[in-house]
Design a protein around this nucleic acid. Structure first.
Lengths: 251, 251
DNA sequence: CGTTGGTTTGATTAATGTCAACGCACGTGG
DNA sequence: CCACGTGCGTTGACATTAATCAAACCAACG
């Protein structure tokens, strides 16, 4: 049931892929698939993995623990996301990757990814994806460093909704969001209690609805304004089309 | 006087470069050089630059402004750092890059960088450099999200000192650090006043000396412990040597 | 039912921000 | 050589945000 659909949809936010490209991705993602339970680690700090992990289904995160138990989540992974393309160069992991919900993950050997890169359109698309990941990370720093709790919470909800929509997992203003408040807190640099109160505030103002594992954005315009959310950093606007691309074509 | 030395020294923390590699870098960096004054923007949010910028001399930063004037710095650039390799794929800048001190910057056209990538050893080294930048950014999130002011300030000082040492710009525990307290604050997600008090605390404990534009780490072990600084995320330990590189053997 | 994981609440405290003033070094122009 | 302006660092008083602690609550589930 979990397939390469989200990944393909995501990459096509950069530029359309041809049939062969999609078939190559499909084949690769199906080669070796593993399931992880909620809270199970997919890769652990200090590991030296030899395969790349792609989330096909479920939510995962990148995180780092301090010795005294404080945790900081530095990325959320949704279906279609690569977890650890760095494996190609950096020997040892300097952080962990864990499943937040039960996850289906494709394990792709290094060489197979290198094979993908022989296709210039895919090489560009994958490069785009990693650059967007970096842009998301930069925005994360801005949130945690300079936005107050309301803005942070609102911002991350806007972002997750957009990213889920980009892989076909949102339906109007609604999407599945199976994150606990403490997980949100660990991502936003807040305490669980404070996230709770902030969510209540946003709910009370009629901006969102968040019950169980479902998020509904009730007033997108107002929420964005409240959170000072500007989606340009997600680069979802087909920046790769009509490119006179020497950009990738080597080989 | 500004040359490619720091860049070369930095890349050799990953793996040694051959003479041809170094000459190629030297030649490229010398092609077009510009000077920027302190506080001058090198690239502005929204720009679509067509050249890549490498800092040869001076300090610069990546930052993002919020409409109401809050600023978050998301990276410090020291000599040897690439500012914007993303230019290859992402069309428009989603943030700005500014000189913190007077800077000498090399402007390298896209195609010239692509030429560099034809040398497998350089391609790997540059890839390594961008992955380390990302790792630094992740650590930045951890600091801002979960470390208190003391730890943040101590951590960034440890990091900057190590990075400067990696490009040959530290001499024992000392290095030039021409950053104002407000600039540090904007990087750490703190107020200028609070950075000031925190620095005084670190000074009073005999951990550092920071006067004028010079930093001296007086007790590295204790400072690291106080800041919970673990340098592994900088990946400066020659991870690229002895790699059975499919990436292509170098002559 | 009793457990468990997650959410909610209230009371209190700690960390950090804000504001406003002052000092100090440096450079510049008279 | 001095007066002045400017940018940064430093201080103190005070405001505010968010953390902490502890308990209660709720729904899902075996």
């Amino acid at each position: 049931m979990a397939d390469a659909g989200p990944l393909i949809r995501k990459l096509e936010n950069f530029a359309p892929l041809c049939g062969d490209d999609k078939r190559a991705l499909d084949a690769l993602m199906a080669r070796e698939v593993r399931r992880y339970g909620a809270h199970e680690d997919i890769i652990h700090d200090g590991d030296r993995p030899d395969r790349v992990h792609v989330v096909l289904d479920g939510f995962a995160c990148r995180y780092k623990m301090l010795e005294d138990g404080r945790r900081q989540i530095t990325a959320f992974f949704v279906p279609g996301d690569f977890c650890d393309l760095h494996v190609f160069i950096l020997r040892t992991m300097d952080h962990s990757i864990g499943a937040l919900t039960p996850c289906t993950v494709s394990l792709v050997p290094r060489e197979a990814v290198l094979g993908l890169l022989d296709r210039p359109s895919l090489a560009r698309a994958l490069w785009w994806a990693t650059l967007v990941d970096e842009a998301v990370l930069r925005e994360w720093v801005v949130s945690v460093g300079r936005r107050d709790a309301r803005e942070r919470v609102g911002h991350v909800l806007c972002e997750l909704h957009m990213r889920l929509r980009a892989v076909g997992l949102a339906d109007g203003g609604a999407c599945e969001l199976p994150l606990t408040q403490v997980e949100l807190a660990d991502a936003l640099g807040l305490s669980g209690v404070h996230v709770n109160r902030t969510l209540q505030e946003l709910r009370a103002e009629g901006l969102i609805e968040l019950r169980g594992k479902r998020l509904m954005i009730l007033d997108a315009a107002r929420l964005r304004r409240a959170a000072r959310f500007d989606p340009n950093y997600l680069h979802l606007d087909r920046e790769g089309v009509g490119r006179d691309g020497d950009g990738g074509g080597r080989g």
